[in-house]
Design a protein around this nucleic acid. Structure first.
Length: 543
RNA sequence: GCAGCUGUAGCUCAGUCGGUUAGAGCGCCUGAUUGUGGAUCAGGAGGUCGGUGGUUCAAUUCCUCCCAGCUGUACCA
């Protein structure tokens, strides 16, 4: 065929931001989700599942001005011209599910779900356009005890998947207090909504950009490594200073506690708090958040949300989770607008090394909060709810990079090779006998042990060498060989490929190598299963 | 979206100060070996040099625009 007539071939390419997963990946994901589900179920959460597609309006992702969905969601029109979208999180579909079944559902409704979500945005290292989340939510649970429970369960989940105590922290905050702080520095009112959001986002970047970066973002703006400039919130120096005071607590702890105690005495607003409680509060660093209010010029009548935060902390303390597993932290803001009160997220605190061997700040692997308004969008009635999402894919990468993930490598099969092409049927029978023998069952038909895979070579059997090559590359521990000689004698050759590879290291001449038929024994067909079993045991594959 | 960098074989990358037939390593295929993996040796397949337009006698090389990828940044429900 001439070059000109060469047909245009389709280029095989994975859409960017998506990944293929191999057996080992799937195995690891299944193991991890099983561990997480286990914790959820022990807390009394039931599994449910909602579809990957939803009507776009139910997800709340229509653009306000145009009659089309937000670009961040993968969307298409149904055959009746309705916009549909792939879900971008598991919370919006839950709200839809609750609203639609509100009459059948008994509140409080405690559920969890796992599934892939999709976001049509630029992928980056560790960021994909399809990834797995696991959510747990308490719907119809108005009290802070529900929020406290969520934080504790989050901590339990981390330990269940193998992250040691001290290697993670659940940080808690309350949006109402943040709002108060911003009001105190003159960012109240609807006209400042945009700037408040900018401020929140800047604070959210504290762990990544550091205090200097946040300072720049709050003021004139920040220039990144590529020379690009990010616009800032244009706050003045005093406002910035008072905001940042919240986060530079280590140096100011004492004065902070004093301030709070003084406030306590003067106003009686924090009545019921002991000094110890205030210190705990401080340790959680929230006290700092009040400073801006306390030092503000306007009279402060109340500190919204602070009582809630203290109550959460009290519950956490009562349950014994105040040992560093859970902390109160003023820089925990969560970008989302729909949160109405307590917010929380879980961060890994150990250094994570990426593929290039660089140490990176991994950031949060789970987050959530209280969203009292989400179901109301559908039904008009307020249904208080709180819950969180775990980024399963992210959590997995973190564990993988750390080698904390035990590699549950899929066991490679024992390979039955084909020597005589006209006796395929015999080889199939041989394969079945071996498979049954290695995978015994009890009287109920249940398997007694983990699977020990056995397969017959399915490629082109013309060249026998290729069959062993295949076995070698698959990592097969054992190959079964039965030519006409063995068949006539009622025997099979059993070749230990692992031992053979070991012996090969000392042989340079191919002639010798082939003739030695290393690590290979001939046994009566009746002894095949027992011999293979013994060999597998010796090589530590299977059991 | 904004900014910077990069596009040459399946992969990793050389190279051409603009000049005849564009290279290497690895991988792949065939054979030495129709009944034995690795190593070795011999041979082979595989390229619109990301695309378009321009400058030129001549462009993979220089210039324009476009596309894609990477990195940072923004957005992230």
């Amino acid at each position: 065929m001439s070059k000109k007539n060469k047909p245009a071939r389709v280029k095989a390419r994975l859409p960017r931001g998506f990944v293929d997963r191999n057996a080992a990946d799937l195995c690891a994901v299944n193991e991890m989700t099983a561990k997480i589900s286990d914790v959820f179920e022990r807390y009394g959460f039931d599994a449910i599942e909602t579809p990957m597609f939803e009507y776009t309006d139910a997800l709340g992702k229509f653009l306000p001005d145009a009659d089309r969905p937000n670009e961040g969601v993968f969307s298409l029109t149904d055959d009746d011209d309705q916009w549909m979208s792939l879900r971008y999180d598991l919370t919006a579909p839950l709200a839809r599910h609750v609203a639609e079944n509100i009459n059948e559902i008994h509140l409080p409704y405690r559920t969890y779900r796992a599934g892939y979500v999709f976001r049509n945005e630029k992928p980056g290292p560790g960021r994909f356009r399809q990834f797995m989340q696991m959510d747990a939510d308490s719907v119809g649970a108005p009290g802070v005890q529900a929020d406290a429970e969520m934080c504790m369960m989050l901590a339990d989940v981390m330990e269940a998947v193998g992250i040691k105590r001290g290697d993670y922290v659940v940080r808690v905050n309350n949006r109402k207090v943040l709002d108060g702080v911003m009001e105190a520095i003159g960012l109240g009112g609807d006209e400042n909504a945009g700037r408040r959001l900018t401020v929140l986002r800047a604070i959210d970047k504290l762990d990544r950009l550091g205090i200097d970066g946040v300072q720049q973002l709050l003021g004139k703006g920040r220039k990144d490594d590529s020379g690009d400039i990010t616009k800032g919130a244009e706050l003045n120096d005093e406002q910035i200073e008072r905001l940042l005071a919240n986060f530079q607590m280590k140096t100011q702890q004492n004065s902070m506690v004093n301030t709070i105690m003084k406030y306590h005495a003067d106003e009686g607003e924090l009545e019921g708090l002991t000094e110890e409680e205030v210190e705990l509060l401080w340790h959680g660093a929230y006290a700092a958040g009040t400073m801006a209010l306390l030092q503000g010029e306007s009279e402060v009548d109340e500190i919204p949300g602070l009582r809630e935060l203290v109550d959460i902390w009290t519950l956490i303390e009562a349950a014994g989770y105040n040992d560093g597993r859970i902390r109160i932290d003023p820089s925990c803001v969560r970008g989302l607008e729909y949160y109405t009160g307590p917010v929380y997220e879980c961060e890994l605190t150990f250094p994570v090394t990426n593929e290039k061997g660089e140490e990176v700040v991994f950031g949060s692997v789970a987050g959530g909060g209280r969203y009292d308004g989400l179901v109301e969008r559908f039904t008009g009635q307020k249904v208080p709810a709180t819950g969180f999402s775990i980024g399963v894919s992210r959590l997995m990468t973190a564990l993988k990079n750390l080698d904390k993930l035990e590699q549950s490598k899929a066991v490679a099969p024992v390979l039955v090779t084909i020597m005589d092409h006209d006796r395929i049927g015999d080889y199939m029978l041989l394969t079945k006998k071996l498979r049954d023998g290695l995978n015994p069952r009890d009287e109920n038909g249940d398997y007694l042990g983990p699977p020990i895979p056995v397969e017959m070579y399915q490629g082109n059997p013309k060249k026998f060498g290729n069959q062993l090559k295949y076995a070698d590359r698959r990592g097969c521990p054992i190959a079964i060989i039965q030519g006409s000689d063995e068949f006539a004698a009622g025997e099979v050759q059993i070749k230990d490929l692992i031992e053979g590879a070991r012996l090969a290291a000392n042989i340079e001449d191919n002639e010798t190598w082939r003739e030695s038929r290393s690590a290979q024994v001939s046994v009566p067909a009746a002894d095949m299963v027992a011999t293979v079993k013994a060999m597998l045991k010796k090589e530590g594959a299977g059991n």
